[in-house]
């Protein structure tokens, strides 16, 4: 495999040609916010729009999860245009996410709480309207609670259920603002086959799926990969 050299935020890096900028950055200790992309998946849905970076020679910011690295590439994760887009995207998510961190069972593992300070965005968004979705909270499962209002539609739970476990009991349903992760017929989780398995809960970044006791394992899907010693 051919390797190329590039710089991210001034740091000189060697990486596999064609690897996505996001992974190269994360593996080299440079954090770029992201929610919807999964390293193991073939393709990024590029849906959350948080991982914008600026690339020298391109007039518009690009999403790091879809941008392959090439020789001599100069990436800036802190460019004003990229940050503006990432901030707006994050603000949009937060404006329809109930901010009740004090009572939230997932506050310790919440990725939104990690992204906010990184982008220097306050949790309560002043310039936008609150757009609550008003969906019922599903606590039918004995193990976990599903609050679709907190969901950021990253699709990690859908992916784990379908690709890793081969079950496919939950997926996206409806369209537009109504788009939601649901079971067949929008039924409570306990009535669907999935009530006993909790793999989806371990990967949820936003507290939409959380264990009833507030504990339980959490898995970081996009962990940086240790560089091999060779």
């Amino acid at each position: 495999m051919k390797t190329v050299s590039l710089t991210i935020d001034g740091k000189e890096i060697r990486a596999k040609e064609g690897e996505k900028v996001l992974w190269v950055a994360l593996d080299n200790g440079i954090y770029i916010p992201n929610l919807c992309v999964i390293r193991e998946a073939l393709q990024s849905p590029a849906a959350c729009r948080l991982c914008f970076v600026e690339v020298e020679g391109k007039d518009k910011p690009v999403t790091a999860c879809t941008e392959p690295v090439i020789e001599g590439m100069v990436v800036n994760t802190q460019g004003p245009q990229a940050l503006r887009l990432a901030r707006t995207a994050f603000e949009l998510l937060m404006a329809s996410h109930p901010v009740e961190c004090a009572h939230c069972l997932s506050r310790d593992s919440c990725e939104l709480l990690k992204i906010a300070p990184h982008l220097k965005v306050r949790l309560k968004i002043k310039r936008l309207r609150g757009l609550p979705r008003g969906l019922p909270i599903d606590s039918s499962s004995p193990l976990f609670i599903y609050d679709p209002n907190k969901c950021v539609l990253c699709g990690r739970c859908v992916w784990v259920c379908r690709e890793r476990l081969g079950i496919g009991d939950i997926s996206f349903a409806h369209r537009g603002f109504q788009r939601v992760v649901a079971t067949f017929g929008d039924e409570p989780m306990a009535r669907a086959r999935c009530s006993a398995c909790d793999e989806c809960v371990t990967v949820c970044p936003s507290g939409a799926l959380c264990f009833k006791d507030g504990k339980g394992p959490k898995e970081e899907l996009n962990r940086p990969v240790e560089k091999s010693k060779s």
Binding site: I167, F184, G185
Partner: peptide
């Protein structure tokens, strides 16, 4: 509902996939 389930079985896909298309 029952028709969607039959269709899902016929195509060998999860029922939620049929539901996802119908609601889209």
């Amino acid at each position: 509902r029952e028709a969607m389930l039959v269709i899902a079985g016929f195509l060998g896909i999860p029922a939620i996939d049929v539901y996802g298309v119908v609601t889209f």
